[in-house]
Amino acid sequence: MSLHPFPYQLYLVISEADCIGRSFLTVAEKAILGGVDIIQLREKNCSNSEFIKKASQLIEITDKYNIPLIINDNIEVTKNINVAGIHVGNNDAKPTYLRQQPFLQNKIIGYSIEYLSQLENEQITESDYLGISPVFRTNTKSDTVTEWGLDGITKIRQLTEKPLVAIGNIHLTNVKDIINAGADCIAVVSAICSADDPQKAAYELKNEILK
Rank of each mutant, 00 (worst) to 15 (best):
Pro95Tyr: 10
Lys54Ser: 09
Tyr97Ala: 15
Val88Leu: 15
Glu122Arg: 11
Glu120Pro: 05
Ala55Lys: 01
Val88Met: 04
Asn74Ala: 10
Gly85Thr: 02
Ile109Phe: 14
Ile67Val: 13
Pro95Gly: 09
Asn48Val: 12
Ala55Met: 03
Ser47Leu: 09
Val83Gly: 06
Ser56Arg: 08
Glu126Thr: 12
Asn106Leu: 09
Ile86Pro: 02
Leu104Cys: 12
Leu98Phe: 06
Ser127Lys: 07
Arg137Ser: 11
Gly89Ile: 04
Thr125Val: 10
Ala55Asn: 01
Ile59Arg: 02
Ile70Lys: 05
Val77Tyr: 06
Ile75Lys: 12
Gly110Val: 04
Gln101Lys: 08
Gln100Tyr: 07
Asp73Glu: 04
Pro68Cys: 06
Gln118Ser: 08
Gln57Ile: 15
Ala84Asp: 01
Asn121Glu: 14
Cys46Ala: 05
His87Val: 01
Ile132Cys: 15
Ser117Gln: 15
Ile86Leu: 09
His87Pro: 00
Leu104Ser: 02
Ile81Pro: 00
Glu114Gln: 13
Leu58Phe: 14
Pro95Ile: 05
Ile109Leu: 10
Ile59Phe: 10
Phe51Thr: 00
Glu114His: 13
Gln100His: 14
Lys54Ile: 03
Ile86Phe: 12
Lys64Gln: 04
Asn66Glu: 03
Ile61Gln: 08
Val135Ile: 11
Leu116His: 10
Ile59Asp: 03
Phe103Val: 04
Glu60Tyr: 09
Thr62Met: 11
Gly85Lys: 12
Asn72Pro: 02
Lys54Glu: 00
Asn74Lys: 11
Ser117Asp: 12
Asp63Gln: 11
Ser56Ile: 04
Gln123Glu: 15
Ile132Ser: 03
His87Phe: 05
Val83Lys: 06
Cys46His: 02
Glu114Leu: 13
Val135Ser: 01
Asp128Leu: 09
Gln101Val: 08
Lys53Trp: 10
Ile132Arg: 05
Ser112Asp: 00
Val83Gln: 06
Asn106Thr: 06
Asn106Met: 07
Tyr97Arg: 08
Ile67Phe: 13
Gln105His: 12
Glu114Ile: 12
Lys53Cys: 10
Asp63Trp: 09
Thr125Arg: 15
Lys79Val: 01
Asn106Arg: 12
Ile81His: 04
Gln57Ala: 06
Glu50Leu: 11
Gln57Glu: 15
Ile71Arg: 07
Ile113His: 08
Ser49Val: 08
Thr62Pro: 02
Ile81Ala: 08
Tyr111Asp: 02
Ser117Arg: 14
Lys107Asp: 01
Gly110Trp: 03
Ser127Met: 13
Asn106Gly: 11
Ile75Gly: 05
Cys46Ile: 14
Glu126Ile: 12
Thr62Ser: 05
Glu122Ser: 12
Ile75Trp: 06
Lys79Tyr: 02
Leu58Ala: 08
Tyr97Asp: 04
Lys107Thr: 00
Lys94Met: 05
Pro102Asn: 01
Asn106His: 10
Val135Gln: 01
Glu122Trp: 13
Tyr129Ser: 02
Ala84Leu: 13
Val88Cys: 10
Arg99Gln: 03
Lys54Met: 14
Ser49Tyr: 13
Val77Ala: 13
Ser49Thr: 09
Leu116Gln: 04
Ile86Met: 15
